[in-house]
């Protein structure tokens, strides 16, 4: 294919250091250090309120932290950038709720997601007919398995299909860091299996995939590495199978 970035597998894609986030008096994340590496699918699990979604909000520029640094590729400081700029720098995020443009067709959704001219929206619009756009759309349609529904309005897709479409929109952008917030919530078993397939195929040497999920079985199936968050602190990092044995994790999840 057309891999351009030459990143050694295992290099750090995102580095979070000394992160502190609070809302008023409530401290969501006291002090967090976290690393996601290229070539890996990294699962982040934890009970409600563990700070998982807050972490994504900080990375994507939605929430400003009180302290800490967030770096992409060890050099780009994401904290000074706004949401569109962070997205263009190579961070893609799938929302918890399926977020697609309902009135546009599947194809149009994907076309819109591709940024050939990141510098200017006007230039982007003028390059709409660029053949590269069509080629890339066809590739992604194939990858997410929605080729047959290309001209269907996204609003009438099933729940799972919308989730795949949204992942497809992120793939259009070839993100360095792809973050999926609870991708299988509300999915049928069949859809979950399909999604697991898709996520496994997303693993690539020039991409780090971050998956936030409640479904342990799903995480075990896809993740090379998991981090368990509890009250904004990482309490475990390693293989999922080991996480299940960890006493602290068991205590957090199962009570005493």
């Amino acid at each position: 294919m057309n891999a351009v970035t030459m990143t050694a597998p295992g290099a750090q894609a995102i580095q979070i250091d000394g992160l502190r986030v609070s809302f008023g008096d409530f401290v969501a994340i006291p002090q967090l250090t976290f690393i996601a590496r290229y070539g890996e699918v990294h699962g982040v699990i934890g009970p409600n309120g563990a700070g998982k979604t807050t972490m994504l909000d900080v990375i994507t520029g939605k929430t400003r932290p009180k302290a800490g640094t967030v770096r992409l590729d060890g050099k780009v400081d994401l904290l000074g950038m706004d949401e569109p700029a962070i997205a263009l720098a190579g961070v893609g995020r799938k929302f918890q709720k399926p977020s697609v443009f309902e009135a546009l067709s599947v194809r149009e959704n994907l076309e819109t997601a591709l940024r050939l001219k990141p510098r200017s929206i006007l230039a982007e619009i003028r390059s709409w007919a660029d053949p590269r756009r069509g080629t890339r759309v066809a590739e992604v349609l194939e990858e997410i398995g929605l080729s047959d529904l290309a001209d269907t309005p996204a609003g009438i897709l099933a729940h799972g299909q919308k989730q795949w479409l949204e992942i497809g929109m992120l793939l259009m952008q070839r993100p360095k860091l792809l973050m999926l917030d609870e991708p299988v919530a509300g999915m049928t078993e069949e859809e979950t299996r399909h999604t697991a397939d898709l996520v496994r195929r997303l693993r690539s040497p020039e991409r780090a995939v971050l998956v936030i999920e409640h479904d342990m079985a799903f995480v075990e199936e896809i993740a090379d590495r998991v981090t368990v968050l509890h009250e904004g602190n990482p309490i475990f990092e390693g293989r999922m199978a080991d996480a299940r044995q960890d006493p602290l994790v068991r205590q957090v999840y199962l009570g005493r």
């Binding site: 949401e83 997205a87 977020s99 697609v100 819109t112």
Partner: peptide, 28 residues
């Protein structure tokens, strides 16, 4: 019907999604 219109519809349907795809929605 042009790409501009499509962008406008995308803003209507889900402005946050569009921003997180790297569009500064201010200008459209």
């Amino acid at each position: 019907r042009s790409p501009f219109g499509r962008l406008l519809i995308a803003i209507r349907d889900d402005e946050a999604r569009l921003r997180f795809l790297g569009y500064d929605t201010l200008w459209p």
